[in-house]
Design a protein around this nucleic acid. Structure first.
Lengths: 139, 139
DNA sequence: AATGAAATTGAGCCAAGGCTATAAAACCTT
DNA sequence: AAGGTTTTATAGCCTTGGCTCAATTTCATT
């Protein structure tokens, strides 16, 4: 048989957890993208960040100030955006997880295009334990 | 080799798409839960919905009015909440997808507890095409 | 060096999704 | 049938994450 049906508190916790994950997802995306831009172009400009995220420039500016508040990035007015050590570490982790999720999806038969698309949303909800299982499965 | 690197527009579209999916996720969760409650208890009361979602009761009320606005549910004041045909169909689809996602995670080695937890967030981002691939893989 | 273009920021708006506190309706139970 | 308890609803507030429009700063070009 499978398992006891979850208690009320357990059900609620699952949703609460999913909501918490969601609130971090956007920060993760921005940090990863800023890392990419610095690697590719040597700097991360607000305009480039906004274009790649598919949002208006002021939206990107606002997100960047959240990153700064969280200690993930720094920036000086009218200059580029930079990652703190914490930000760079997060970017690496997010990038690696993204690759693993795409690889797993493809390994179970999802076409690359679709895998990339779905991974963008899925990755944030993949816990460390699931990620470890994915890596093991891929080996 | 893998593929061309995605164009700027394609990258932006992925994020835009993930945002759209996210905006529907909460509605999906509520609809599924209301369906569960009706199946289990014969009715879906606001208090039960709130408790299971892990949310204050006025928050659930507000979400339900969104469901009504979207044509997924109906309710009369101080009475229970009911699903429209569209709502019931969505609930079925969401429930089936949830089960498939959990099954896939377990099939690649994720422990059941973790699979249930992660699936709660992941499921909303699994497209029809990925879902079909999952079902195929599980067979 | 001045000026026009481009990039960035700031102000102010909106909807979603949380919350608490309070009012109102429905329900039991005597 | 009255009164107290429970359930729902309403009001009002907060944060996040979008947007537009306008002001500012920087950059590039003449």
């Amino acid at each position: 048989m499978t398992q006891d049906s979850p208690s009320l508190a357990e059900m609620a916790d699952r949703f609460t957890h999913a909501r918490e994950v969601q609130s971090k997802a956007l920060l993760e995306d921005y940090v990863e993208m800023i890392g990419d831009l610095i690697a590719e172009l040597g700097e991360a400009r607000v305009a480039d960040i906004a274009a790649r995220m598919g949002v208006a420039q002021p939206t990107a500016t606002k997100a960047i100030s959240r990153l700064k508040r969280e200690g993930l990035a720094t920036s000086r007015p009218y200059r580029g955006v930079f990652l703190t050590d914490a930000g760079a570490a997060l970017a690496d982790k997010v990038r690696a997880r993204h690759r693993t999720v795409v690889a797993l999806l493809m390994a179970v038969g999802v076409p690359e295009e679709v895998a990339e698309q779905d991974a963008e949303g899925i990755e944030h909800h993949v816990s460390d334990r699931s990620l470890a299982a994915f890596e093991n499965f891929l080996r």
